[in-house]
């Protein structure tokens, strides 16, 4: 949350992809990428948020972190879903957001599309590879 500064980023919209590959809580990767995604929203950039490998566990339903004394940040992904909705609905905002789960990673872990806390597009790896190749900036963790 920044108070004082307003940046003029009009006309500077790039295609960002965020590649999440680690399960939450064991390492800091997931949280770091999530923070970067939220910053991306503040600057109204295009964003593909992708969950691959163990990254799919970041958005698994039913997380309860009370006993491990950590913040349950699976709830924070709701902001991403909300940003996507805003971007989809508001014609004034030139911002395309996609939330993607790689089909192979999901199936390898016995998960299904309705196991996630947010709505996702489930896309097979060959198609996701093409989407990835079209990005301008990729941030991964």
């Amino acid at each position: 949350m920044s108070d004082e500064i307003e940046f003029n980023t009009a006309g500077v919209t790039k295609k960002f992809m965020y590649v999440n590959r680690k399960a939450p809580y064991g390492t800091i990767y997931a949280l770091e990428v999530l923070e970067a995604v939220l910053i991306s929203a503040a600057f109204e950039q295009h964003a593909c948020i992708v969950f691959v490998d163990d990254g799919v566990y970041q958005i698994k339903k039913g997380q309860d972190t009370d006993a491990v004394n950590m913040k349950n940040f699976s709830k924070t992904y709701g902001i991403i879903a909300m940003e996507k909705e805003d971007a989809d609905e508001d014609d004034d905002i030139d911002m395309v957001w996609r939330i993607i789960v790689e089909q192979e990673s999901m199936e390898a872990r016995g998960l299904r599309a309705d196991d996630f806390v947010i709505d996702v597009e489930v896309i097979p790896s060959d198609k996701l590879a093409v989407i990835m190749s079209e990005q301008e900036i990729v941030i991964s963790g």
Binding site: V52, D53, E102, S125, A129, V130, M132, S133
Partner: peptide
């Protein structure tokens, strides 16, 4: 493996 799966 993931790199090979997701690179064109």
């Amino acid at each position: 493996d993931s790199c090979l799966r997701l690179s064109i």
